[in-house]
Design a binder for these strands. Structure first.
Lengths: 194, 194, 194, 194
DNA sequence: GATGAATGAGCGTTCATTCAT
DNA sequence: AATGAATGAACGCTCATTCAT
């Protein structure tokens, strides 16, 4: 069974994710990427106009996958705070388990590429426009339990600490274990709770 | 008054700060940097061994300047929370007024260059080893008022939201005005207060 | 018939030989070499890791070709001295006809590149380890006819005069015609004969 | 006593000799040369029009010094061959003791610089036009004892082996001790003697 | 479609030379 | 005369992109 076009496209994206995460956009030559994807250099250009488009497309894929992963069934039996903590823990676990995705996203947002992306939508609504698990939770279930404040600030208080700590955790500078995740989630909740 | 060597060095650093912030390390050729600094390419290499050293030296300068800017006289007459809010407001104002410095630092920490720098020390102790205004406040005055928790998490809860929101504010995606700064600072305080 | 890779590699080596011989390693920019070879700069690096490797590879090629050229059928019917004279004459004719090769070799041996090459092996054993026509003759046929002496001195007495005179001949300072070649070969023989 | 101009000029030439011998013309930047000579870069250009002229001037100096060193009182009491051997031994000893001078000369002759210099004059007449010790000996005392042959070939048979062997000796590839010097000198004599 | 050899603009860096002091 | 900071053309090399097969 020879790989079809879609398979090849995915191979390229997978190789790109790894290489970009490991070496950065600027230290990941197309030739190396092609080799890692077991594809000819020229073939990459059949699926992506140029390196920039490849990066943007990769962002879309990673973003969509991330949003899908964070869907969690409603748990009406537990308290709102507990639901919040569960969501945060899910998020952190997911990103800890997917360091390439995290590094890529960080790099993307921290570059001219990411300027046009509304970063505050990261976890609240996917780039597709659909609302994320977090967004639904905050705008829905938890609405009454959260102090009224600017949406931007709310997002910053929730997402800021997570990304900040994960950066160091994934670089190996810090150990982010369960007790600390709990500390972090509780702190975030206290920051926003009514 | 013709510029002396120190002046020229500063011209180069200034041009580098601007170019790195605007285009990123990898899209700021030495030739363009030289032109912006009104200097010949070769002259840069009289002051800096290579591009990497220039970047590291620039980090030192920016960091030192930032630490100096955040020194604030003790205000024993107001509450600990109010002091915290003042410090955060100072920090945010400073970085809002110095977007190039902010973008450069973000980029530096998010690159192989900054790996060796403990990022959590960003605002808590200067790169010189001296403790920053923030560090002194948290380890001193505010110690009793803060909930016991891992230092890493504490830093994340304080610094994470600030950098997250500033990124968008400086990109022009979000307006970060006084009320929102107050919201943010209060949220951070609630996240860590005992 | 479009040129294949091997052809292109040879074009580069040929252009390099000419340029190195004419201007020296340090005055033969890669760009000029590319132009002379009707090739893009980047293409050179597909065949050679860097300029140094190109030089070493060129040496190999030139050396192998030289060794091959000096093979001469055994002539048992003539005296040892005459055989020696034939060999020297062959060598001189070959190098006179291949001045680029001669200049390149001189330059190679006289540079850090050639330090690791035993220069005394120049004509006595090829770089491949196989013994050259000269080496076979001296260690074999002529062994009994040659005065016992240090191998180094023996080589110097044979090769020294040839290279010395060829340098001037090829520069056009001296005319090296048949009678003189005979004089030289006889002199060398007298220097080493028992 | 501050150094006068002549002293400074000599410092530069000395530093140049060392640097050129150690690193080659092309790896001896003017700045390094200036530092080694304890002189400002600009000062070099007061004494020499450019780097090329410096190299040519250095050649003159080295050549003159070499010729002077090889003057040896006539020794009528010993045989012509013995006188020849003495001269050769003197030459080899001198060059062994002055490896920088030897390396410089080799490099000079082996570069576009040396093409215009009659190399065959190396030891037979100085660049000044005066005849060298060797030249006087061969054209005078030894004339009758030497086989009639082209002057060029004669020189090659005498000088070729010396330079060939010295190159390796000075590079450390070969040990050139007294017995070998004797072997070499005898060989050369046999090459040219009537 | 797929390939990968070929391309050449562009990069970081060096260094002979100049010139204001 | 002497200095050494300043200059910028030129270098070796990389790599995103193209295109003949």
């Amino acid at each position: 069974m020879t790989p079809n076009g879609q398979q090849k496209r995915n191979d390229i994206l997978k190789a790109a994710l790894e290489l970009f995460a490991e070496h950065g956009f600027h230290n990941a030559p197309m030739a190396q990427l092609a080799k890692r994807a077991n594809v000819a250099v020229g073939s990459i250009y059949r699926y992506f106009k140029d390196k920039d488009e490849l990066i943007h497309e990769l962002y879309s894929e990673v973003d969509v996958t991330l949003q899908k992963a964070l869907v969690r069934a409603a748990e009406p039996s537990i308290s709102t705070q507990q639901q919040f903590v569960h969501l945060m823990t899910d998020l952190i676990h997911y990103l800890q388990d997917h360091p390439y995705e995290f590094k890529f996203l960080e790099q993307y947002y921290n570059s001219p590429f990411g300027v046009e992306i509304k970063r505050d939508k990261l976890l609240l609504s996917g780039s597709s426009g659909r609302q994320s698990a977090f967004g639904q939770f905050i705008a829905g279930t938890a609405k009454e339990s959260i102090k009224p404040m600017s949406a931007q600030v709310l997002y910053a208080l929730v997402i800021g600490p997570v990304t900040f700590l994960l950066r160091d955790a994934i670089s190996g500078l810090v150990e982010l274990d369960e007790p600390r995740i709990k500390e972090l989630a509780d702190g975030c909740w206290n920051a926003i709770k009514r």
